[in-house]
Design a protein around this nucleic acid. Structure first.
Lengths: 296, 296
DNA sequence: TTAAACTAATAGGTGTAGCCTATCAGTTGG
DNA sequence: CCAACTGATAGGCTACACCTATTAGTTTAA
């Protein structure tokens, strides 16, 4: 059975005239006759009574026509549904986001983000990089916001912003009066780190190692907030990303010289169906004033 | 858009696997891929995410799938509707029937007729032959029960029964003691006739004319029952069809010699869609015991 | 790390179904 | 009775749904 044939039947029922119906369907009259005849044979039902002066529906035809109309209406609804949902970022979007970005980026942007993409229902899930990559593969996430890492080479990534690493020290710390510090200046400090799995910790550890700076690892925090609480009581220093550098009692943020950065990206599977939407969102994020202000 | 393509989408959504879905649809995997891709382009929506380990629906795909299922369900209903209504005599049937048959045939047969054709809704409309033929042409009647007349040559007819003309006389009439009469015996009687338009009157008049019998026409009744009432008070004699010869107080029914008959037929348009059904009904009528008994 | 197994997509060829024009058969109306 | 109109039929063309064979890419196992 064919939807087009059903349209033909509907047209004949409306016009009660094969040629007029054919015109309305933009086909020739023989085509219409043939297709309707074929449908009648397929259904095993004679739909039209062609022997009267005016073509009329048979009793069965009348019954079936109402059902045919239902099908055509529902088909129209499908088309409209498709037409109104072909924007790039439509529907429910599951977005992974790493813990060293989520609490600082989302509060600043979520409200205006919802306003900018009214057709989208964002659902953010905080998870570490490794978990994110698995979830992307399984289709449990649409895309993710995270720091660029080598493992992302198998994924599609779009740069959003570059973010400086800062050093958080207690206002009581001797370094507090400096604006900038070198990594070597931290040698004598108690350097607090996040626990394993945080890419932020991996990257920090890596450039500390490059600079020949020891990392004590005597305490590993589960969140930056925990570490900053320790810093505030002058029990050590820690690295924080620029976005996390909100004013906090008892804490000073120092630039690192030469500066260390991480590259925050949107990542999705290669061949993710809505790459265009991801790029669009990335651009929107990159240009957002709240973000630009926080990165200065 | 094509119903088959929607089936493909449904199958992929169920199996989450192109090759398995293709098997389920009895087509090759490339065919399935191609058709779904075509549909996706037509709708402007990517329905499936093929980049995950397991094929999954996109958010839009999920939305559209529910609508696709609605369409397929409604299509199934259409097929079932067609399958259950392809009996020859289905639905509402409008049947014309002439006044000299209706009141005698229907009471005897209607109940068992409804039982024998439970899928049919008979609707009988009493009308004279000329009106019936017009109504058949306009599609206002499906078919009719009437006496065969020359005008029916342009229609499809099926014989149902042959019916003798009888003569109704008062028990007080001198003819009442006879079993049979010749038309010439009626010369001296007051011959009551139906009004114009009744084919029964036309036919009676015709064979009276052939036999050289005068018809007074001083009174024309609108129904056989009126005429029989006049006969009962010995105010004349009249012709009645055999089926109308129920026992009535004060009336005797006499055979005519040589006998005169009318041929009662089912008639419909040539090319009426359900000729088979009409023939079936005609045969059922012809074989009905009530009818056979009444015709003896 | 490579080989084997599996995924979906692509390429290229084939048959048919849907469409066309031209014509026919039947009916209606001037 | 002929002209005009109805829907059905005949025959031919083309697009497309379908096939097999192959490719590109990924996952699994050796």
């Amino acid at each position: 059975m064919n939807l087009k044939d059903l349209e033909y039947v509907k047209a004949i029922a409306q016009h009660k005239h094969f040629r007029k119906a054919a015109d309305a369907c933009f086909v020739s009259q023989p085509t219409l006759s043939g297709q309707v005849k074929k449908l009648e044979q397929e259904l095993g039902v004679v739909l039209f009574d062609r022997s009267t002066k005016q073509v009329t529906l048979t009793a069965q035809g009348e019954r079936l026509l109402t059902q045919i109309n239902v099908i055509l209406e529902q088909t129209q609804i499908l088309k409209e549904l498709a037409a109104t949902s072909n924007g790039p970022l439509q529907g429910k979007l599951k977005i992974g986001i790493i813990p060293t970005i989520a609490p600082y980026l989302l509060p600043a942007l979520l409200t205006s983000m919802k306003a900018a993409f009214p057709e989208s229902h964002f659902s953010f899930i905080e998870m570490q990089t490794a978990t994110i990559l698995e979830a992307l593969d399984d289709g449990e996430l649409d895309f993710a916001i995270l720091a660029d890492v080598p493992e992302l080479k198998n994924y599609h990534t779009v740069n959003v912003y570059k973010e400086d690493f800062m050093v958080a020290v207690s206002t009581d710390n001797s370094l507090a009066s400096h604006k900038k510090v070198a990594l070597s200046d931290l040698q004598s400090c108690n350097l607090l780190m996040l626990s394993d799995g945080h890419c932020f910790k991996d990257q920090a550890q890596k450039f500390c190692f490059s600079a020949g700076v020891d990392v004590s690892n005597q305490y590993q925090g589960n969140s930056l907030e925990t570490l900053l609480a320790l810093v505030a009581i002058n029990d050590g220093v820690t690295f924080v990303p620029k976005l996390a550098c909100a004013k906090r009692a008892g804490i000073e943020y120092l630039s690192i010289f030469p500066n260390q950065q991480r590259n925050v990206v949107l990542a999705c599977r290669k061949h993710y169906p809505h790459l265009a939407g991801v790029e669009q969102l990335a651009q929107w994020l990159a240009e957002h004033p709240n973000l630009k202000r926080a990165l200065i």
